[in-house]
Design a protein around this nucleic acid. Structure first.
Length: 864
RNA sequence: GCGGGAAUGGCGGAAUUGGCAAACGCGCGAGACUUAGGAUCUCGUGGGGUGACCCUUGGGGGUUCGAGUCCCCCUUCCCGCACCA
């Protein structure tokens, strides 16, 4: 049966041919063969961290998707850049190395080799001449170089700040890496600790990071997540003078300056610097105890908004500046409570219990006064009904702003405090500066020198890279100091400019550093004199399509945008934003099984029995559910296994056929044979039973006239071409494959009418999806060259319209019949034909109205 | 609690954006070919009645000649964020 479809006989051969012909090699300006008239297309995958467990089918979904797009774009005539590399530095690589007892260099090299093999196995056409590895010196040299650009611009600084410390990982972490007081990687508990750390001033770009989201073709949900993370709010800061010491004041931030007249107390966060100074002797013990308790509480406990509010009075009072000196309403008590965050605003708030839920709850708990200063609109419950009203309304009990609606009241209140020089309008952000140092080994060393006098100088450009020292013991130190501090010969160095002794910085950059500019390196990956050439950036930037999981909605995508904007300001890049269009591929989920008690059962313990599932060797019925793939459930699928059993083309088709690229969908092994059967049927369309290419498809065969069944196939082919074209618009590539299947079914039915021209055009259509079988058939048909470099076939309008079409005929909106009418028939003629078909439904009734939708249907509205 | 997304046959999913719901695939049923199994091919397959009738896109209302699609209310699930003053 040599003529059967046997993908293993030819898939690797074609992969080798593509490599030799370098068909995925993108051409840079100035290179031989570069055509300035050719349009460029830069499609980028979020490059992976090369984990020890290799690629699974979820990664592959995005990679196959971009490969199909890239291959299609090549066939459309674009100069396509589709690169791949490895995000190899960072905590996971180091943790894995520690677990396995191997050096991260060794494990990283092993893992990247495996990833690359897997990707090639799938037949993905990357430009491997641009492969990068963020942990290689010829890459991180430029990461260091770019870091110095930030440093020179004053955007990198050292500060003693309360940072997240993870005892398990023995390192500090960024805000973004800590979720509910636990590390994002590994889910270990974290605590706040004051430490001297490198920070990047991302807050200086908050406004632009927010504003420039507008012009991006990104999923709205990602934009919203970024907006929320940046967390801009407009309001005012207001100084409340302390009664005892007139020179001192407490500054609060509020988004509702219009409610100043309703502020009945102030609250400081337990970490606020003034707490120690203002508490009165009588209250000092209670305050101290409270602050200590708050410090020892876990972040999760503190963050739990549902629990009852706690707090303690400091004994001190402050003056509300909107009231006159003698007004008793102006003297407000100062409390300490942990519902006020030290990290937001000024770490102190004015409490307006009448119009803020949290303050309301606190005031009730501690029996503090509540004053109404905003009257809700008619019909809305407010303080009069005993509920806190937080919406807009009309100012009352507020002296000079009484009667004003909230918007104007706010503006007037700000004007008033500014006049009295006791505050000003202010914008705050939730976004914090980015904690950029780690006390770990596997990262980029900081290109900075500490001199004897305590000053810091950058390592000169020509002395880069600062190489990571070879260390055999790179485990984090128990005391939290950096492992690099133990490489004493490395630490002790000289300042090349002065020849004076100097010490290297012993922290390393976080895992995100390398991914903050990698799309730029891909443009000019082998450049030894610069991170990338101006010409390459001018030509390739920005990325036209960036594809990856929604998991990176905030961290990577925010950091990358930040660095890119700094580069823009430094004149290094010509676009404000790095990624014009962002697309999130959906998650590939898996089936899992739970028993009667709701416990999940590993999938190798499960046996299908008809339409039910049983625990292997028992009668326990199990319920099939959909979950994330997880090692513990043994439902992680490796592409290698699928390819070994079915071939790469089947694997690719199944990945794309599962559903729209953006949707989450379960991996269902039962569906895979359907895709393989399609390829087998496709194969049979091209060969006779003896295994020879059908004579009418072979080179030199005479084309059949486009009539009868051949015309039918021609029409079917053009429809498939059109549907494929459409499917690329929304990346619903599953519908393209459905169109291929329909065409192949037609050919199977009308075998004798199939022509060489049709056979050849169909291969050009299918090639981006199932490139191996397309090449094999292409060459067996006697075509020269590669189908991967042939042109996309065109749909001709005249083949897309039928002369006679079937329309639906409705009576009162219900389908009652069909009729075939000429496409160009006039409405009255269509109506007359329709009337005959549904005569039985119309008899004895009065036709009130007739709706004729050309080419679609006729609807008779009847009475009686 | 707030924000975003979703809900269509036994399953994954289609539906020209207001115009014949269920394309395509899986699964299932019947048949053909086979000594037999497998593979392949053909036909069927939303539900109920089983004649030509009714029902059906999570539920309930509405707009319309016509609603999976638009509007209002509700339920469930997934993903973010979560005392941000």
């Amino acid at each position: 049966m040599t003529h059967a479809y046997l993908p293993s006989f030819f898939e690797t051969t074609w992969q080798e041919r593509w490599r030799q012909a370098q068909i995925f090699r993108a051409k840079n300006p100035g290179e031989p063969g570069f055509d300035p008239a050719q349009k460029k297309y830069y499609v980028l995958d979020m490059f992976p961290y090369p984990s020890g467990s290799g690629l699974h089918v979820g990664h592959a979904l995005g990679y196959v998707g971009t490969d199909v797009i890239a291959r299609r774009k090549i066939m459309e005539g674009f100069n396509v850049l589709h690169p791949m590399g490895w995000d190899a530095f960072g905590l996971p690589a180091e943790q894995y190395a520690i677990q396995t007892g191997k050096h991260p260099r060794a494990t990283t090299d092993e893992n990247t080799k495996n990833f690359k093999r897997q990707l090639e196995n799938i037949g993905i056409g990357y430009d491997w001449s641009r492969e990068i590895d963020t942990s290689h010196a010829d890459y991180y040299r430029w990461t260091q170089w770019l870091f110095l650009k930030l440093y020179e611009r004053g955007l990198a600084y050292q500060a003693e700040v309360a940072v997240w410390w993870c005892e398990e990982l023995k390192t500090v972490l960024a805000n973004e890496e800590v979720i509910n007081g636990r590390s994002e990687r590994g889910n270990h508990p974290c605590v706040r600790r004051p430490l001297k750390q490198w920070m990047l001033k991302i807050t200086a770009y908050a406004e632009r990071l927010l504003a420039d989201l507008e012009g991006l073709d990104w999923p709205e949900s990602i934009k919203i997540q970024q907006r929320e993370w940046i967390g801009r709010s407009e309001g005012a800061e207001v100084h409340f003078r302390l009664g005892a010491q007139p020179a001192e004041s407490i500054t609060v931030f509020t988004t509702r300056p219009d409610t100043l007249w309703g502020a009945t107390f102030l609250v400081l966060s337990p970490e606020h610097a003034l707490v120690k100074r203002i508490r009165t002797p009588e209250c000092s013990k209670a305050v101290e105890a409270y602050v200590a308790a708050a410090a020892s509480k876990s972040e999760i406990d503190r963050a739990d908004a549902s629990k009852e509010k706690t707090g303690v009075f400091t004994g001190a009072f402050a003056r509300n500046p909107v009231f006159d000196a003698g007004d008793p309403r102006g003297l407000v008590p100062v409390w300490v409570a942990d519902y006020v965050l030290s990290t937001y605003g000024t770490g102190a708030i004015m409490s307006v219990p009448g119009h803020d839920e949290r303050d309301f709850e606190f005031a009730r708990r501690f029996d503090l006064p509540v004053r109404e200063v905003v009257k809700p609109p008619k019909g809305v419950k407010g303080l009069a009904e005993g509920v806190c009203y937080t919406g807009d309304g009309t100012a009352v009990n507020s002296g000079p702003i009484d009667g004003l609606p909230t918007r104007e009241a706010t503006a007037r209140a700000i004007a008033l405090i500014e006049e009295r020089k006791t505050g000003r309008s202010r914008v705050t952000y939730k976004l914090r500066d980015w904690l950029f140092s780690r006390q770990r080994y596997w990262g980029e060393p900081f290109p900075l020198l500490h001199l004897a006098d305590g000053s810091i100088v950058p390592v000169p450009e020509d002395a880069l890279p600062v190489l990571l020292p070879e260390m055999t013991d790179f485990k984090p130190s128990a005391d939290g100091s950096a492992p690099l501090a133990r490489a004493q010969e490395w630490v002790r160095t000289i300042d090349p400019r002065t020849q004076q002794p100097a010490r290297r910085d012993t922290d390393t950059m976080p895992g995100w550093a390398g991914s903050c500019w990698y799309w730029l390196r891909f443009m000019d990956a082998r450049n030894e004199r610069a991170p990338f050439s101006k010409a390459a950036e001018q030509y390739w930037g920005p990325v036209d399509l960036y594809v990856g999981g929604a998991a990176h909605a905030v961290m990577h995508l925010l950091y990358a945008r930040f660095w890119h904007k700094v580069f823009f300001d430094a004149g290094l890049v010509h676009t404000k934003e790095p990624f014009q269009r962002l697309f999130n591929q959906g998650m590939v989920t898996a089936f899992a099984y739970e028993d009667a008690t709701g416990r999940l059962v590993a999938s190798d313990e499960v046996e299908p029995a008809g339409d039910r599932y049983l625990r292997r060797g028992s009668e326990d019925p199990l319920k099939q559910i959909v979950t994330k793939m997880a090692k513990s459930l043994k439902n992680v699928v490796n592409p290698d296994d699928i390819i070994a059993a079915n071939g790469a083309d089947t694997f690719r088709l199944y990945e794309m056929f599962m559903g729209p690229l953006a949707d989450s969908k379960p991996w269902n092994p039962r569906d895979i044979p359907g895709c393989k059967r399609f390829l087998e049927r496709l194969w049979r369309c091209y060969f006779d039973p003896a295994g020879e290419v059908r004579p009418e498809l072979a080179r030199g065969a005479t084309e059949k006239p486009l009539e009868g069944d051949t015309a039918l196939l021609e029409r079917s082919l053009h429809k498939a071409i059109q549907r494929t074209h459409d499917s690329f618009q929304d990346l619903n590539l599953n519908t393209a494959i459905a169109a291929f299947m329909t065409f192949v079914n037609d050919v199977t039915r009308l075998q004798a009418a199939f022509t060489r021209s049709q056979a050849e055009r169909f291969l050009r259509l299918v090639a981006p999806f199932a490139p191996h079988v397309a090449e094999e058939l292409w060459s067996r048909m006697g075509q020269t060259g590669l189908v991967a470099q042939a042109a996309v076939p065109a749909a001709e309008p005249r083949w897309l319209v039928e002369d006679e079409i079937e329309i639906g005929i409705q009576v009162n909106g219900k389908l009652r019949g069909n009729a075939r009418v000429p496409r160009v028939a006039a409405a009255p003629a269509v109506e007359a034909a329709a009337r005959q078909v549904v005569a039985a439904h119309l008899s004895g009734k009065e036709v009130v109205k007739v709706v004729v939708v050309p080419g679609k249907l006729v609807n008779f509205v009847v009475k009686g």
